[in-house]
């Protein structure tokens, strides 16, 4: 089993329903290809760092999914390339740390976790010194 993550930017000019429908078509396509959808993250409307297709904002979506092999990536990317509603996309294979990171992020551990670890590190050092 492999874990993948596809992030894409949807044209913000569309109505809210159309944007949701766009994301849903790709979720459906992945499900039909036999993938297990782990999480669909709506990152919402963000300002782009540089204009794409003369748009300065975009709606970000991130779909994390699990599949036996990478055979459905090509059809997915082809569909996205042909889709005018998608401004940009990026498919990434996640390593085990990436999977864990996304899991922790969903649970809300990231951010707090770093501080806690920093504290435990200091405590360890204190113990070693004493």
């Amino acid at each position: 089993m492999r874990n993948y993550e596809v992030t894409f930017i949807v044209d913000p000019v569309l109505s809210g329903d159309e944007i949701k429908a766009t994301a849903q078509t790709y979720v459906d396509q992945l499900k039909q290809a036999g993938c297990e959808i782990v999480h669909v993250d709506e990152m919402g409307l963000r300002e782009l760092a540089y204009p794409i297709n003369k748009r300065s904002t975009g709606v970000y979506y991130c779909i994390e999914f699990r599949a036996a092999d990478g055979s459905m990536i090509d059809p997915l990317e082809l569909a996205m390339r042909r889709d005018e509603r998608i401004m940009r996309f990026l498919t990434v294979k996640l390593d085990k740390y990436g999977v864990k990171f996304n899991e922790d992020k969903r649970k809300g551990l990231i951010g707090k976790k770093r501080q806690q670890q920093a504290q435990t590190d200091e405590e360890d050092k204190g113990q070693q010194a004493s």
Binding site: K100, F101, R114, Q117, D121
Partner: peptide, 13 residues
């Protein structure tokens, strides 16, 4: 290494 961060997230600018 010091804080045990194993994954660098590209979605966090």
């Amino acid at each position: 290494k010091r804080y045990g961060i194993k994954y660098v997230d590209y979605k966090n600018p």
